[in-house]
């Protein structure tokens, strides 16, 4: 590397990077700051045309180099200064979001979506922790005993997302429901966003806990399609009923079914191949009906 010509690459809007001038901001040259800004780079930085990483490395250099600061000063326009100021105010004056929102942003969820999700009770820490704990004990029991233990885990795992979705929106679950009701943002969209987030945050822990305690048996995934079927069914029912009630009803039905078959039929009858196909069909049909009736939700 020729350290005198190495300098931050200027990534332009077209997405191409001039590789002959490219450099990784974290590379050796950046750390030793064996380069200086030229006019082109100063102008590009001043006009905010640099990629965030390149700009960051320029800023790191500026902190250490008075002569480059001198070069930059005349290039910075008033409008950019104003814009920087607004950003500074925004950063200083905006409260840091809670841990769940920060996590969402970390995995690439956009700010406003993260906030829409964090408003749901079942997407906040107490609920997520409680649900994981319940699954943990169910898995523990499943590992110890055979018949009822395994059934218990298979029965509980689908209920966690169903109840979570039921508590994620609607008059009973949302304290500011009435305000949201008359806001222009699509209630259907909020519902789907939260349902998807609840599914992810309950299916992933259930899978992890299942694999950890039960090993790689089919039990670990046997509840997945039931979970999808029951969740989409209770979403569909929330068109006519309170979401919490729809979720409670669907869950009660499910538990009754599982217990009944366990008493009267081969214990895992609810999770056989034909049954799984039925869950898939319920999921698809509910999904289609949900989509067709989307206007009824707002």
């Amino acid at each position: 590397m020729n350290q005198h010509t190495d300098r931050p690459g200027d990534t332009n809007g077209d997405g191409h990077t001039d590789t002959s001038r490219d450099m990784h901001p974290d590379g050796q040259a950046g750390r030793r700051t064996g380069w200086h800004m030229d006019d082109d780079l100063a102008v590009a930085y001043a006009e905010g045309r640099l990629s965030p990483t390149t700009a960051a490395s320029v800023e790191a250099h500026l902190l250490a180099c008075a002569s480059c600061r001198g070069l930059l000063a005349p290039q910075v326009s008033q409008t950019r200064l104003d814009r920087i100021w607004v950003e500074v105010v925004d950063v200083v004056d905006t409260p840091a979001p809670g841990p769940f929102e920060r996590l969402l942003r970390l995995v690439g969820v956009r700010h406003h979506i993260a906030r829409l999700l964090a408003a749901a009770r079942s997407l906040r820490l107490p609920w997520l922790a409680g649900a994981s704990l319940a699954l943990f004990f169910a898995a523990l029991a499943a590992g110890e005993t055979t018949r009822w233990g395994v059934i218990g885990f298979l029965a509980l795992a689908p209920i966690v997302p169903v109840l979570g979705v039921g508590l994620a929106f609607g008059r009973g679950a949302d304290p500011a429901y009435e305000i949201g009701l008359v806001a222009p943002y699509s209630a259907f969209r909020v519902m789907l966003l939260r349902a998807a987030a609840v599914l992810i945050t309950s299916v992933v822990p259930a899978l992890v806990i299942g694999v950890a305690f039960l090993g790689q048996t089919w039990t670990v995934v046997g509840w997945l399609l039931p979970a999808l079927a029951l969740t989409s069914l209770s979403l569909l029912l929330s068109r006519w009923f309170e979401p919490v009630q729809a979720a409670a009803g669907v869950s009660a039905l499910w538990l009754t079914g599982v217990v009944w078959t366990n008493l009267h039929a081969p214990s895992l009858a609810m999770f056989g191949g034909a049954e799984q196909l039925a869950y898939l069909i319920i999921t698809v049909v509910s999904g289609v009906l949900l989509f067709l009736g989307r206007r009824e939700f707002s």
Partner: peptide, 22 residues
């Protein structure tokens, strides 16, 4: 008789409503 999302800060709650207002 509206409620508020009590776990939100004042800023977060009003920001949340602003998001719902598109």
């Amino acid at each position: 008789e509206t409620g508020y999302h009590r776990a939100f800060t004042v800023f977060e709650f009003v920001d949340y409503v602003a998001i719902l207002k598109e």
